[in-house]
Amino acid sequence: MSLSQSASGSGHANAPEAIRVTGLCKTYANGLARSQKKQVLSNLNFQVNRGQSFGIIGPNGAGKTTLVKLLLTVVRPTAGTVRIFGENPEYSHVRARIGYLPERLALPPAATPAEFLKGVCRLKQMKNPDADVERQLARVGMSSDSGKRIKIFSKGMKQRVGLAAALLGTPDLLVLDEPTDGLDPIGRAEFRNIVLEEKQRGATVVLNSHLLSEAERICEAVAILVRGVILRKGLVRDLCTSKTRWRARFAPLSAPVAMSEIGFNETDEPGVYSYETDDPAVLNQSLDAVRNAGALLIELGPELKSLEEVLTEAVGP
């Protein structure tokens, strides 16, 4: 299932894609003679629609950062293609539309945030960048520190400056690699709001984060990358919805009903039971049985898993 197909239900139908990755492979050559080969990514295929927020999740060493760098041509593919807004990201005019926050951004220590951001504006060839620099510094809460040297900043403050740099020039695509690393909980909430504002503006967001709760809150779609292979991809809603486990809420029982004998297992929540089957007929038969025994069904739906559970299932034991 491609993400464009799966996203059609979320308001992005017929939207041209922001990212298309086809047959992407990356092998690093190591050693003195570069004879030792290590395949990091293997035959990746996916696309991200315009305006969609897309998460790349997976365990450490899965190749997530390499994938992000491949999107930006910081790393060149061994095979396959990457297209951003239908074009090769090697083109400068394509990269001018991208805002990127690297995992470990090294900022010039002797510069001030304003100086650094103006430098980024110059490289993006933005006209009259001062207003945008001030605006983005204000958005990330760094206005009062804009004249201080970066060398005295904490990791979180540097991260904020990096985020401001990524936001310069109202990019159409925001690529954020572990963006909340070093931010305190308030900072994370602020960051989330900024990203959601950008999404509302129409920007496409690619998020690589090991914080699954963050990906869950921000992303509409995710790809689960494990050992260089995409094991699952799709809308978060679809991935987190169980196909075999059901959640049924019953009204307080007036007389005892042998729910567990029929297959309904009690959960931690009072009156809520879970039932496991992939056959709707079996589910209905069991529901009929408990209702005939006197139970009153109030609510029924598929059980929702967290992204953590989805990832754990995908990675396997």
């Binding site: 400068s92 990269r95 690297p102 951004l105 090294a106 490289l123």
Partner: peptide
């Protein structure tokens, strides 16, 4: 310094060849 980790990635993501 320009090629240092964290700086070069950012520079190459900008419209710089």
């Amino acid at each position: 310094t320009l090629l240092s980790p964290g700086r070069i990635e950012h520079l190459l993501s900008l419209p710089v060849k």
